[in-house]
Structure formats: structure tokens, C-alpha cells
Amino acid sequence: MNSSLDSKNNQLNLHKPRNITAVLVVCLVLLVICVFVSLVFGSRPVRLNELIDGLFHPGVDSFGANVVRKRISRTIFGLFCGAALGVSGALMQAVTRNPIADPSILGVNTGASLFVVCGIAFLNISTANQYIWLALAGAAITAVFVFGIGSMGRGGATPLKLILAGAATSAALSSLITAIMISRTYVMDQFRFWQVGSVGSATWNSIATFAPFLTIGILIAIISAPALNALALGDEMASGLGVRTGVLRLVAAFAAVLLCGAATALAGPIGFIGLLSAHTIRLMLGPDLRFVIPLSAISGAIILTVSDVIGRLIGNPGELEVGVVTAFIGAPLLIILAMRMKVRSL
């Protein structure tokens, strides 16, 4: 089967891109720069000596060093969330064969949010471990529901039908969230900061909780990438190459929901990262998911970290939540992509 997949990849020009090394180096350099910027800039910029003290001199108890230590956990958590959402978006686009699929567009984030709200309101949950399992359940149920609705009728799960199904589902679930919160002030107070999407409340405990989900999800995604390339040829062709399309979709969707649900549970519903990162990498390297998936993780981490820093600088002396910043960046891109797809269909 592997030789068949490799030969078909060659026919589709899915060989190793010539510029892969250059793109990887650029992405890694940008990632290092983003980490540096995230540690230095915020409501209170730190000097170089304070950065060194915060990173390498734990005995120093100055204000600047403590600010840096606080930003370390925030930066790592932002990198993890960005990587998870970037890979989740790439997987959703591959599974649905929809170039503008994204957890926020398909309503998966909203489903996770609904379950978290229900947990806060009816089960009195308050910890990251409790959030994460409820968010995963909500994300999974919503993903299955949206794909089922979008698959009904002639033509199956077309991009337009999936977007409409996701938008309608998201609107309905948002109404339920509002209905639950409106009569429960304590739920609204606890939920409203989480709802906009933020990495500002990151702790080492939340990073440790998130790390296993991130590792498992990305490993499944990377292992599934060659078969997902075959799936792009169509179900019949992929089956002829020995790919069990039903199992593949289930496994890849599980990884996407695992990554998206875990990130949403701990950081809130941050949108458009998957859309932005996957499209950026495809523009540079082409459609081969063996390269798109790992580099979407790096680009997703870069985009979310940059957005977080922008939010801190714009909102100074407070901060603008990262979910708001990514929405401002991602919404125009979604409109442009949707217009291009409409033009092609005409």
C-alpha cells in the first residue's frame, strides 16, 4: 500500500518541495523571534538584564524578572494552543475536503463552549481537568452533528453545505449558551473571560494538562498524513490504494477534535488559527499533508503568539484578548476565500 501511495503522490506532484528547508528555517527563526517578543513586550516591557535574570537567575526577585517568569508559562501555553489549532484546522480541511474548514467556522468551538457552560452551571466544575473532558465531548458531538447535516442531500458534504451547517449550529448553540447564562450571574462571571479566548491565565498546571493531548493529537495527524493525501483523490481512488476511508476519517477527525477540544477547554474558543496557518503553509509548499501538518503546527504557534503580543500592546495598560485579535485577522481572509470559491464555481 505504501508503494501505491508513493507512486500516486508522485503523479500528483506531491513530492518533497524544493523550498521545504528554506520554509522550515524561516518558520523556526520566526518562532524564536516570537518567543523573544512575547517575553519582552506587554503592558510593561522588560529590559535585557531583566530578561536574563528571569530566565537564568531564579534567585533574583526583582519585578522585571518576575514578569518574565510569568510570561514564560503564558508563551509556552500560547505556542501549544497555536500548534494544536493549526494542526486541527489542517486535519478538518483534509477530512472534509473543504479548504476553508476551521474549528470556529464549523461550530466545533461553540459546541465545546456549550458543554463547559453546562458544566459550570449544573455540575459546579472549576478546574482545567474538568473543563477539558467536557469540552472534548462537546466538540466531538458538534463535529459529528455538523458533518451529518452537511452530508445530507445531493452532492454529500460540499464546502458550502458544511459552512452553512456549521454557521447554523453555532448560532443555535450560542443561543443556548446565552439562555443558560442569563439567569445565572455567577456562571456569566466565570464564563465571560473564558469565552473570548485568552492565554493570559496560563499556568504550569494547565500546560501539563494540555501536553498529553497535544502530543497524541499531533502524532496521529502526522501518521495519518500519507493516507489523507490519498483521500484527496476521492474515496474510490483511495480505497483502490488500500486506504480504509471510513476508519481514516474517524481517526483523523478524532485527532482534530482532541486538539481543538483541549485547546478550547483551557484557552477558550480562539478562532481562525487553523484557517490562517494551513493556508499560509499550502501557499508556500503545496497540498502535501506530510509537510502541511507539521508546519501548520509551527505557523499556528507563530500566529497565536504574535496575536497575543498585539493584543497586549493595543490594550495597554490592560490587554485585548487574543481571540478578538485572531477574529480581526481571520474574518477578512475567510471572506476573500469564500469570494474566490464563489467565482470559481460560477
Rank of each mutant, 00 (worst) to 15 (best):
M237S: 14
A225P: 05
I310C: 09
I52S: 03
A65T: 06
L228Y: 04
S174F: 06
G107I: 02
I120Q: 03
F254A: 11
A143I: 03
V146T: 05
G271N: 04
S224I: 06
M181L: 08
V116S: 00
P269Y: 07
S170F: 02
T75V: 02
E319T: 00
T169H: 07
L85T: 02
A165C: 10
H57N: 15
A179S: 11
A165F: 04
F291G: 03
V26K: 08
A143G: 06
G234I: 11
A84G: 06
H279E: 08
L79F: 01
N9Q: 14
A252V: 07
T21W: 11
A232C: 13
L295V: 12
V108N: 12
F80R: 02
F254P: 00
G217I: 04
M341T: 06
L241N: 10
Q11V: 09
T21D: 13
V32R: 09
V322M: 04
A172S: 13
T264F: 10
I120K: 03
L136R: 01
P58A: 06
R71E: 09
D61K: 14
R97E: 11
D102I: 06
R192M: 15
P58F: 11
L219S: 14
T215L: 15
I293A: 01
G268N: 09
S345D: 13
A255D: 09
G150T: 05
R344C: 05
F191D: 03
A278Y: 04
S277P: 03
R74G: 01
C260Y: 00
S198Y: 05
F41P: 03
V29T: 11
L114D: 00
R290A: 07
T215P: 03
L214E: 08
L266K: 01
N10E: 15
L320N: 02
